[in-house]
Every structure is written in C-alpha cells, then in structure tokens.
Design a protein around this nucleic acid. Structure first.
Lengths: 178, 178
DNA sequence: CTGCTTTCTTAACCGAAGTCAATGCACAGG
DNA sequence: CCTGTGCATTGACTTCGGTTAAGAAAGCAG
C-alpha cells in the first residue's frame, strides 16, 4: 500500500513530523492505542530481544507505514522500533487518521482490513520461510527490496533472514562466483 | 479462542453441519465472502501446491475455527482445505454469524479484530521459524499440540515443519535416545 | 595521519538436513 | 492367505549453515 503525493502531503500536514537521529528508539507506549508511523525519510528496523540477541523482524523505508502489532498476551517478548539511519518520521494520532479518512474515503475499507491483509502477507512470508533455503531467501530479498542491502549493515540483513552474518557472507561469495 | 458449550451449541443449531469423508476437499469459492468453518470432529489440513508438492500450512482439529485467508493478489498460489480424517464440520454463513453475534455480543470485538490477532499470531510463528532449528520446532509442536502427532501421518507433520520426512524420522530417533 | 571501533570476510571444524536408494512394516483388497 | 500400496525407517553421501577464532576493510574521531 503506497500513497500518492497528494495523500502523503495531507499526512505531512496533519501528523506530527519529527526528526530522529540514528539509533534512536521510537517510544511505543503500552499495549493499546499505539501510534502509527509513516517513514518519510530514512530506515527503521523492528526487532525484539531473544536472550539479549537482537532479532530483526522487518525494515521500513521511505513511504512505508509502520502499523502497531497487536500483542498476543502470553509471550513476554516485545517489539522495538529503532532508526537505522537518521530519520524523518510522521507520527499519526487517532484524530489525524480520522481526518485523513474523511478526506480520502477510499482508504476506509483498506484501514478496516489492515489486519487481514497483514495476516495474508505474513502467511506468504511464512510459507516462503518454510520452503526456501537461506540462499534463496537472500536472492528473493535482492529482487524484492534491492535497495535495502545497500543501506543497512549486512549483519542486520542476516538477522532479518534468520542466519548468521558469516553465512550471509559465504552466500554472497557463492552468488558472486556464478 | 475457544467456545463454551452453550456457544458451540448455538453454532451447531444455526450453521450447516455436514459430514465429510477422509480426503474430502472442502469447496472454497472465489476470493471474497468465503465460508468460515468450525471443526466439530476430525482433522483438517490447509495446504497449497508448490510445483506439485503439497506444502501444509496448518492443521485444524476439534473446536478450531477455520477463518478464510484474504488473498494477496499477485501470488498464483491458492490454499486448499482437506480432511485428514472423517470430519464433522459446521459451515458458517454470513447470516448465521450475524445471529450468533446478536446472541453473544461479547464476541463482536473479537470478530472485528480477528485479522489483527491472526497477524500477531503469525508474527510469532514466523519469529519462531526464523530462529528455531527443525528439531526445536518439532519439540515445540510436541508441547503445544501433543495430540496432533498421534493422529496425523508423519510426512504431513514434516511438511508442516518445513522439513523432509526422513529428517523428521531422524529427529525423533535423536530425541528418543536422550 | 593515526588509532579505534564497527563491519565484513576467511578458514577450519562440526553437526544436521537434503537426497537417493533400500528395507521394513502395516494394512486393505482380492 | 498373499500381494500391493502407503508410510516409516535406515544408511551412505553431499551440501550447507553454525561456531569459533582470526584477520582485513571501512568508517570515524582525535
């Protein structure tokens, strides 16, 4: 889901836009009523901590909306958002979302089924993950988000792919040879 | 999300209950307005075909609701539902859902955020899949759904875990030894 | 420019999963 | 009862990722 210039403009006007320095961790209050973010410039990672190890879940770059994750109660894990680069980020409030939807009603159904679509997207991701080898996952990432590899450190890409940095290095070498 | 006896009873009355033989494939019409199912007895698998290979996505047993997957357009893949055992399944229509929610309004918010919760659940599944070895995934399955392993052929469990049947056999052997 | 930190690469070793092929086993149909 | 089919196991072999440790390269500050 991407925005036209006009739509992005309205968001820029309505929402609270802020600059964040590299490595800044976006504050996310309690379980409910979290903010939505829209990355205008820069790159954000979503991750959680697994016995002190950072496990990267996703990256967000220009025009990517960051939707809150509804917590499934039991698990103690928590997701964090951190700026991989200096960022300009638009923080959406409940009211600004409201006004945005009044201005662009065509987004209403989309907002309603955001959860469904997210679920479907994640189903596909999970399917891929089950059936693709690490090397294939990396190639797929290269195809789908070629820019990403050039702007985030490889050890983060490795974490995102669920492998060790050393393995990613070898994979790159292998692919380069062929 | 589970149902009390009373709730399940109403569903039983309202919905269309049918028997299906083993290996029967539940018909799922086009992209929109699919049925919801509730497994009363038996076991259903959700899978898709990957170059003729069956890739199992999930299993559903007694009292598990089967929610439709909203299709993310591009991918040609399609999910099928097939009975692993003879099944008794309650098929929900739009109207019966309506009546059910009138009778038990407490489920309304849940139905609204079904997508969100599904997304959150799948996020956790994906997290696990990225960071657990096949052997650990099998152990986790044993803990979370111990019954499943006893009623589903192992090659299907293997498919669900994203590994080969031979590997699962060796994993079992390894675990048995310790 | 120098020295530090961060990031990436390389090598050696190990263990586990994939693959292919053969065997064992249970169960259903004739 | 015998036979065929489907499923599970086992073995030999290969490949690839994890681990550990060391060193190279790149970025940054003094």
């Amino acid at each position: 889901m991407t925005f036209t210039d006009e739509e992005a403009d309205l968001i820029r006007k309505e929402d609270i836009i802020q600059n964040y320095s590299k490595n800044y961790i976006l504050p996310q209050q309690g379980a409910i009523a979290q903010h939505c973010f829209l990355v205008l410039k820069g790159c954000v990672k979503r991750y959680y901590l697994d016995n002190g190890v950072e496990r990267i879940v996703d990256f967000y770059t220009e025009n990517d909306p960051i939707t809150p994750v509804s917590y499934v109660d039991k698990k103690p894990s928590q997701y964090f958002l951190s700026c991989v680069e200096p960022c300009i980020i638009s923080k959406g409030t409940e009211e600004s979302t409201q006004r945005f939807l009044e201005r662009f009603p065509k987004f209403v159904p989309i907002f309603v089924q955001i959860g469904d679509r997210l679920a479907a997207k994640q189903q596909l991701q999970l399917d891929d993950f089950k059936n693709l080898a690490p090397e294939e996952r990396y190639q797929k990432l290269l195809e789908e988000r070629p820019n990403l590899v050039n702007r985030v450190p490889q050890y983060m890409i490795a974490s995102y792919l669920g492998i060790q940095p050393e393995s990613l290095s070898r994979i790159r070498k292998r692919l380069w040879k062929s």
